[in-house]
């Protein structure tokens, strides 16, 4: 019931203007169901994130055994690997939201894509920093141009490009659509980038992906469980953060549309055509 009702505008303005704003902002102005649903889900997801983080960190940092070769430093893995997974997942989800926004012009998809970008960039950043911290004791250097770290680095730049392009336009809807096209092109190129960076791998070193073959994991069960719980914690944290960002973006849009209505008090009905 929000828009016109809480405004102190004269009622005749309210009808004509309200109508026009409904038309224009139907993508912002009708997310009531989302607000209700997300408001219900948010506390639960946040709770799950808190619990899984507590359990996961306890298992990872205290219970799980140190690695035979890497000793205690292997514990960085529990922070590093789920961050890498979530980074890729975020980009996929962002590109999918952009596709939905561009094809069906769905109201919430733009908001979702915009909200995902900084979270995804955050995950790539965590992944890069922990990778570097892990690299030092393992390889004796802070940075190695190994295939997976390099592709996460490029992913970081793709996120950055998306955000910079989004902000480069004066009109946010234009920014959303331009950045959306970029995200979709980037999504097609991510596997190509990954594959070509693998060719760089010919010249470097890294452990092969150890969890991808889940049927016969080369990682021991005592390490696998903490890793999976941490992954769950990251996912729940991601969802919670995403919901918070989307909700605040929608509230921001509402504030903007209220301001617009105030600014547009003067009715803008065009004068009907008449013969000269």
């Amino acid at each position: 019931m929000p828009l016109g009702g809480c405004l102190g505008l004269a009622s005749d303005y309210r009808i004509t203007l309200g109508l026009a704003i409904m038309v224009n902002l139907h993508r912002f102005a009708n997310p009531n169901r989302f607000m209700r649903l997300s408001g219900f889900v948010l506390p639960w997801v946040s709770g799950i994130a808190a619990i899984t983080f507590a359990v996961g960190l306890y298992l990872a940092l205290v219970v799980s055994p140190p690695d035979y070769e890497q000793r205690e430093t292997v514990r960085i893995m529990y922070i590093h690997v789920p961050a890498a997974w979530m980074a890729l997942f975020s980009y996929t989800l962002m590109a999918a939201s952009c596709a939905v926004a561009l094809i069906w012009r769905h109201p919430l998809a733009d908001v979702a894509a915009k909200s995902i970008a900084p979270i995804g960039a955050g995950f790539t950043f965590i992944c890069l920093v922990t990778g570097s911290l892990w690299g030092h004791p393992t390889w004796g250097t802070w940075w190695v141009w190994d295939a997976r770290l390099t592709s996460v680095l490029i992913l970081f730049f793709l996120f950055m490009g998306y955000m910079v392009l989004f902000d480069a336009f004066d009109d946010p809807t234009k920014g959303a659509r331009a950045a959306g096209v970029l995200a979709m092109v980037g999504f097609v190129f991510v596997p190509i980038i990954k594959f070509s960076v693998d060719i760089l791998e010919l010249r470097t070193l890294h452990q092969g992906a150890s969890v991808s073959k889940l049927s016969t994991p080369s990682i021991h069960e005592s390490m696998l469980w903490p890793l999976l719980i941490m992954a769950l914690a990251y996912l729940a944290y991601f969802i919670a953060l995403l919901l918070v960002r989307m909700r605040s973006a929608i509230l921001g849009a509402r504030v903007r549309s209220l301001r617009m209505m105030q600014a547009e008090r003067a009715s803008r009905v065009a004068i009907a055509p008449e013969r000269l």
Partner: peptide, 25 residues
């Protein structure tokens, strides 16, 4: 994608270069 923006040049490189890494490699 940058036609409507104020800072064309640098922005184009920022968007395009990550996508061109496969070509370079």
């Amino acid at each position: 994608l940058t036609v409507g923006t104020r800072r064309g040049g640098v922005l184009v490189s920022l968007l395009v270069l990550p996508l061109l890494t496969p070509v370079l490699i």
